[in-house]
């Protein structure tokens, strides 16, 4: 049946949405300026991903395959709208910080990719687990990026001072820093991957 360990490993490591599959890059670079924003965005995406996966998996029998993409888009956009209304009421500060990137979850490639590649072929329970582990992988990668950026650019992690006297480099909070950080994290992932492959061969 469901092997939770294996699923978790798949979502977080072997098929990590940001670092391995390179999906959903726009929000991951735009909101990773502070760890709070990264965590908030990650959880928001995880919730939408899990719910839409379940709904699409239940509805797969009724959706004609020719119009499935528009149907998925409407389902996803509906839940994004609900999420947006919830966030406006319960987390207004986060809502203001993330700005247009909350409605843009609707066109995030990860959600569409999981709907098309997984939820439309598997049962609701499996799809729900897939949504959660993929969302978890997205959240962890996003938190990693934003912790690095917040530390280098602001000398803070979750708004707490890290090293007193360290002069932060503001460029890491700005757009170029986002590109540099993700480049180096992805290069690091490549090194780890190739090391593992050579180990497996010998």
């Amino acid at each position: 049946m469901l092997d939770i360990d294996k699923e978790l490993k798949r979502g977080i490591i072997t098929e990590n949405p940001i670092l391995i599959l390179a999906l959903g890059l726009c929000p991951s670079l735009a909101v990773s300026t502070s760890a709070h924003n990264g965590l908030g965005m990650g959880i928001a995406v995880m919730m939408v991903l899990a719910i839409t996966n379940v709904i699409i998996s239940i509805a797969q029998g009724w959706i004609p395959s020719k119009v499935r993409i528009p149907c998925y888009i409407v389902i996803i956009a509906t839940f994004v709208t609900i999420l947006q209304m919830f966030m406006k009421v319960y987390t207004p500060t986060l809502d203001r910080q993330l700005g247009i990137f909350i409605p843009l979850i609707a066109v995030n490639c990860i959600i569409m990719a999981r709907a098309e590649a997984y939820a439309s072929k598997n049962n609701p329970l499996r799809s729900f687990v897939d949504g959660i582990v993929m969302g978890l992988g997205f959240t962890l990668a996003l938190v990693l990026l934003s912790v690095l950026r917040e530390f280098l650019g602001n000398n803070k992690i979750f708004d707490l001072l890290v090293i007193p006297g360290f002069q932060p480099m503001t460029v890491f909070i700005l757009a170029p820093g986002g590109f540099f950080i993700i480049a180096f994290v992805m290069a690091l992932v490549n090194i780890i991957k190739s090391k593992k492959e050579t180990k497996a061969k010998t």
């Binding site: 757009a175 170029p176 820093g177 480049a183 490549n190």
Partner: peptide, 23 residues
Amino acid sequence: IPKSMEGFPIAFITAGLMALAFL
């Protein structure tokens, strides 16, 4: 370019340098 930087990483570095220029 170094092997680990091939593909996406080097593209991001390029984009980062362009973003720096646009800054």
